[in-house]
């Protein structure tokens, strides 16, 4: 009996989501980014299509994060408190294909910056780079609803990815996205059912399915990564098997999550067995990103330039199989 490659055809197809809008499309971006569209498990080109490469974003802040790791600060010291400049650096030097603007300072406990001020920050970034934007909020419902509404309004036509809504707070922001034509991140706490439920709720309010990206909630390596990993594999399997309410691209945040763990911020002197801190901080984010890429992620928000470079290179390498064996 000769060997035959065991091919598993899927009936489902992951939705294709486009972020950003060029001037023809009513925005000001120089290009758009499209993710999704796969008809097979990640990187398996022998049994399906993967028309779009996973996209790599980097993140800038309206406020310097309280515990920003030293290993990262070395790369960003000059721009960390200037989101527009930092965005430029990420795009021009580190190859970011999208920029995420994190609006933490609008949180009432972290500065309570107003919606107008937040919109200003977004505007500045929009002016300084030409790549599509992700706008990243927080979990203070009342405040973020106000902020996102404003941001959606001032960026009307740009088709930003508004990050994020959850089951307990989706209506206001989703309505704003629909009114001003933005895409949305549907976040659910590491649970297939809840991910699906939120997508159903969004589609029940007629939110267009080609504008939804799932955030399964990223656990950093060593801090719940295994849950994220398996939930993503399950979401992707179900989506490909024909469950249209799970057939969406997925966004993950290896940068943000890794930047919060002890493993990227203690030195080798303190923890000799953990090895060199510079390397380790890049490794941690790389390993988080690469494993979740294997599980099906299409949009990856990175922090560490070295990790960014490495992941980008390996996404390309993983796509080398595109041309067939």
């Amino acid at each position: 009996m000769g060997f035959e490659i065991p091919i598993e055809k899927n009936s489902g197809k992951i939705a294709e989501v486009t972020i950003g809008a060029t001037s023809e499309q009513g925005g000001t971006r120089s290009n758009t980014i499209t993710i999704g569209g796969s008809t097979a498990l990640p990187f398996l080109f022998f049994e399906g299509e993967h028309p779009n490469r996973p996209a790599l974003a980097m993140e800038v802040f309206d406020k310097v994060p309280a515990k920003y790791p030293e290993a990262l600060l070395d790369y960003y010291r000059d721009v960390i408190d200037k989101p527009a400049d930092m965005a430029k650096k990420c795009v021009e030097q580190y190859g970011a294909e999208l920029i995420s603007v994190r609006l933490d300072e609008t949180h009432p406990e972290k500065g309570d910056r107003s919606a107008d001020e937040a919109a200003d920050v977004v505007r500045q970034v929009l002016d300084s780079v030409k790549v599509p934007l992700i706008i990243t909020g927080h979990s203070h419902y009342e405040k973020i609803n106000v902020v996102m509404k404003k941001v959606c309004e001032v960026t009307a036509g740009e088709n930003c990815l508004i990050n994020y809504v959850e089951t307990d707070n989706y209506k206001t922001i989703a309505a704003a996205c629909m009114a001003y034509n933005h895409s949305i991140v549907a976040q659910s706490p590491i649970d297939v059912n809840m991910a699906k439920q939120l997508n159903i709720l969004l589609s029940d309010m007629n939110f267009p399915s080609e504008k939804i990206v799932i955030d399964p909630l990223t656990g950093a390596l060593g801090y719940g990564l295994e849950y994220t990993y398996s939930i993503m594999e399950r979401i992707r399997n179900d989506g490909l098997a024909g469950d249209s309410m799970l057939a969406f691209p997925m966004i993950i945040n290896p940068g943000y999550e890794s930047s919060r763990v002890k493993e990227v911020r203690v030195t080798e002197e303190e923890y000799p067995d953990w090895g060199d801190m510079e390397l380790r901080s890049a490794y941690w984010e790389t390993a988080t990103a690469m494993s979740l890429l294997s599980a099906g992620s299409e949009l990856i928000v990175m922090y560490h330039p070295k990790a960014m470079e490495t992941v980008k290179k390996h996404v390309d390498e993983l796509y080398s199989a595109e041309s067939g064996n």
């Binding site: 649970d191 297939v192 059912n193 809840m194 699906k196 439920q197 159903i200």
Partner: peptide, 13 residues
């Protein structure tokens, strides 16, 4: 747990 969260929807996820 998976069955349960699936059931927390009307009528079911």
């Amino acid at each position: 747990m998976n069955e349960y969260t699936g059931s927390l929807f009307l009528p079911h996820t």
